[in-house]
């Protein structure tokens, strides 16, 4: 038995496919590729697949991770990305297959890049907003009530740039212990009333461990 970590990008029309649907999709792709995968036991056996970090509907990802388990120890995993890409739509591109270095429980941060459709107008107000002492955001809890908290201390790092449009790079806690969706901050920002709403695209650039090293 051999654990394999598959690294892929998600974008294009696949952006609109939810995490749950992606799980079903991946199971199907694996089946179609006829990989010697290990099946879970029990009443309804299915190929064993786990994801390092679910991606929100609508986000693009340049760094997504999925683990599978192969029965054949001698299987040449180098060819896996090519094999899978051949049967995947353009929106999913595998770029690496390797043995996992860390367990998925050690995912700690994610790095996002958010590009606004604002012709640079948001650069100043957003910068002011992010520099303020505290940033109140509201989040729905699992029980369904709204929890308000200060997200500022949780922002690990951020930078703002302009390339004709405003681009925000931000690093936030991610994983099963604590997970902050950048949309929380954007909703608070647009809700603060200082600017008009602008379209934006969120891209997850990487997943990091607790020391801010690339999670592999």
């Amino acid at each position: 038995m051999k654990n394999v970590r598959l690294f892929y990008k998600k974008g294009g029309r696949m952006r609109f496919i939810s995490h749950l649907d992606i799980t079903r999709f991946m199971a199907r792709i694996i089946k179609r590729a006829k990989l010697p995968v290990w099946f879970t036991e029990g009443f309804n056996p299915h190929p064993y697949i786990t994801f390092a970090l679910p991606l929100s509907l609508g986000h693009i990802s340049e760094y997504d991770i999925m683990d599978i388990r192969l029965c054949d120890d001698d299987y040449d995993i180098e060819k896996l990305p090519e094999t899978l890409n051949a049967i995947c739509p353009d929106g999913i591109r595998f770029f690496k297959a390797a043995e996992p270095k860390l367990k998925t429980a050690f995912v700690a941060f994610a790095q996002f890049e958010i590009e606004f459709d604002d012709k640079g107008e948001l650069l100043k107000p957003l910068s002011d907003f992010l520099k303020s002492e505290s940033i109140e955001v509201s989040k729905k809890t699992k029980k369904g009530d709204i929890k308000t908290f200060d997200v500022k201390p949780k922002i690990k790092d951020f930078s703002l740039n302009e390339n004709g449009n405003t681009v925000l790079k931000i690093t936030l806690p991610a994983g099963s212990e604590e997970n902050i969706n950048p949309e929380l901050i954007l909703t608070a920002f647009f809700g603060s009333g200082v600017t008009n709403y602008s379209c934006y695209t969120v891209t997850r650039k990487s997943i990091l461990d607790k020391d801010l090293n690339l999670f592999e």
Binding site: R13, R15, F16, S18, L57, G58, T201
Partner: peptide, 22 residues
Amino acid sequence: EKRFEQLLLSVQKPGRYSGGEI
């Protein structure tokens, strides 16, 4: 395309309208 995709994200099941299936 950008604006369209933004709008798609405002509805319940954007996967109904996004196309691009295998």
